[in-house]
Simulated assay, not measured.
Amino acid sequence: MLLTQNATASLPLGIVLRKSPGVTRWAKWVWKAVAVLPGAAQENWKEMRREGEVVEYHAATVDLELYRTDTEAYLAGLSTNPPTIYVVMREATDPAAPQDIEVLLATASPYDAQDYSDAGEEIIERVPMPDGLIAWIHDFVQQHHEEEVFVKRKRDKQRIDLVQDGIGDARIHQTTDVYRAPVRKARVVN
């Protein structure tokens, strides 16, 4: 864990992905994020377990970064049952990639996860947080969260309905009702 003076925290987080056979002919493989490993070493597609065609990989290690300004989002994430980390993945664009999916990042903020899901190009998976990670994020939130004080807006007492301002075009002088329908002048035929 690295805690800096500018109120950010960073922790390496290993992402475990499960690759299993697809159930349709259009999806050959199904990828699912199944676990996170707090404090993991750097790995790149290390096979962890194999049962038949189902394989679990330590796919990547990414930094889970916490920011002082996002503590409200972390509180929302901690209040889910169970508290979750959101893993953002994308189909690999490089044909030389070891697998057909790549891990972009992990976040504890459900707001960030929503932003990535709005684009529709990324795959977002929810992974339950281990107890140690819950405690680490909770400590960060306790240290940096400042509740926003609700300030009710007060109206001024000025009466704005007494003056008809902005009706019609001020450059055109009219002595009649500005809301009347236009009238056509009759043409005289000789």
Rank of each mutant, 00 (worst) to 15 (best):
E43Y: 13
F150R: 05
E56L: 03
Y57V: 07
R90I: 15
N190A: 15
I160E: 01
T61E: 05
T61K: 01
R50N: 00
G52T: 06
Y116S: 09
Q158Y: 05
V178G: 12
G120Y: 03
E56I: 05
Y57A: 04
A59E: 02
K28N: 12
Q164M: 10
V163H: 02
K154E: 14
L133Y: 03
Y116G: 03
D169R: 00
L66T: 09
R90W: 09
V16P: 00
G132N: 09
T84I: 10
N6L: 06
G168V: 00
E53C: 07
L66K: 10
L11A: 05
G77T: 01
Q114N: 06
A186S: 05
V163G: 01
T175K: 15
R126A: 09
T61A: 06
E147K: 04
S10H: 02
A60Y: 05
E122V: 10
Y86D: 03
R159F: 13
A7N: 11
D100S: 14
R49K: 02
D156I: 06
G132D: 09
Q114Y: 02
D118F: 09
E56V: 06
D118R: 09
R159E: 08
I137H: 00
P38V: 04
P95N: 14
K19E: 15
Y86H: 06
T80Y: 01
V151C: 12
V62Q: 13
V183A: 07
Y111R: 10
A35R: 03
D156K: 05
F140R: 00
V189Y: 04
A186Y: 00
L105R: 04
K28H: 12
Y86Q: 03
